[in-house]
């Protein structure tokens, strides 16, 4: 199976332009026989939208989304957009399309709202973390910050995911003498989670600059043993693709049966106890 990552540079707040960029990347991916193409977070809109968020929200039934989904006939595509729900809530969503149909939509759960991030001001919080079947096997989507909450990949693995797709908009910041801050944490996180849950992780991070804030790229694909298979360049647009062996999930899980041995009942029991304790705690102690 050949998977591809579109390490692209979306224009800020220009859906039309980004729509055409998507078509270009899809075309390029097809020429390279890519069967699953992952775009970065909010690939159809750009990231620092602020008040543009209100104008850019699109229903899954909107013309733009429906048309883009039709391009998933020869390869599966996964792209990000501002979703306007039927009850008028805006979500930071990623959509999986295959064979001209919507297969799944993940609404970002963990919206960073600290430091340079302001997502909680504009977006509603997703309430579901769930895997879904695809023609390649069971998959899950976690958008950027979602991946920094270990419960999120844990849930997907328990829900039988064999792949986690991680579209991201991770900025180049806190530079020191060796690297961009958070960059090595990202790779350590991806490698650990892939190995602990014996699944493939596809991390697609954007590039480009919005008001002086650059996104570092460096997209990466990690196998179920936690080995990085390929990594894209920093700060440059690139179609990164590689062939992966789906049977590696089976082999990794037989070799190290962490998932088989996971005690779900214990986890649920203890979580319920913790939750109950928190509810019962006096407010002013």
């Amino acid at each position: 199976m050949r998977v591809g990552l579109a390490q692209m540079r979306p224009a800020l707040g220009d859906i039309q332009r980004n729509y055409h960029l998507h078509l270009d990347w899809i075309k390029k991916a097809k020429q390279n026989q890519v069967e699953l193409l992952l775009f970065p977070e909010l690939s159809l809109t750009g990231y620092h939208l602020l008040d543009l968020t209100y104008d850019l929200g699109r229903s899954v039934h909107s013309q733009e989304i429906k048309e883009l989904v039709t391009y998933s006939k020869d390869l599966d595509i996964v792209f990000g957009f501002v979703e306007l729900s039927e009850d008028h809530v805006l979500y930071n969503s990623t959509l999986y399309a295959s064979n001209g149909e919507i297969v799944h939509i993940h609404r970002k759960v963990y919206l960073p709202t600290y430091g340079m991030f302001d997502e909680g001001r504009y977006f509603g919080r997703g309430e579901v973390i769930r895997s879904f079947p695809t023609r390649f096997g069971q998959m899950g989507i976690l958008i950027c910050e979602d991946m920094w909450h270990p419960s999120a990949p844990f849930l997907l693995a328990q829900d039988k995911a064999q792949f986690i797709l991680v579209p991201s908009n991770s900025p180049a910041r806190s530079l020191d003498q060796s690297e961009i801050g958070s960059q090595s944490f990202w790779y350590a996180n991806l490698e650990n989670q892939a190995a602990l849950n014996s699944l493939f992780i596809l991390f697609c991070n954007r590039v480009g600059t919005e008001d002086g804030i650059s996104f570092f790229g460096g997209s990466s694909i990690v196998n179920p043993y936690g080995d990085e298979l390929v990594r894209a360049n920093m700060l440059e647009e690139q179609l990164l693709y590689t062939d992966i062996d789906l049977d590696e999930v089976r082999r990794a899980r037989l070799e190290t049966p962490l998932l088989r041995d996971e005690n779900l009942d214990l986890t649920i029991r203890e979580l319920n106890r913790i939750r109950q304790n928190r509810l019962e705690q006096k407010r002013w102690t």
Partner: peptide
Amino acid sequence: DFRYMRDWGL
């Protein structure tokens, strides 16, 4: 409360 990046639409 009129908040846009300078790179609006660029």
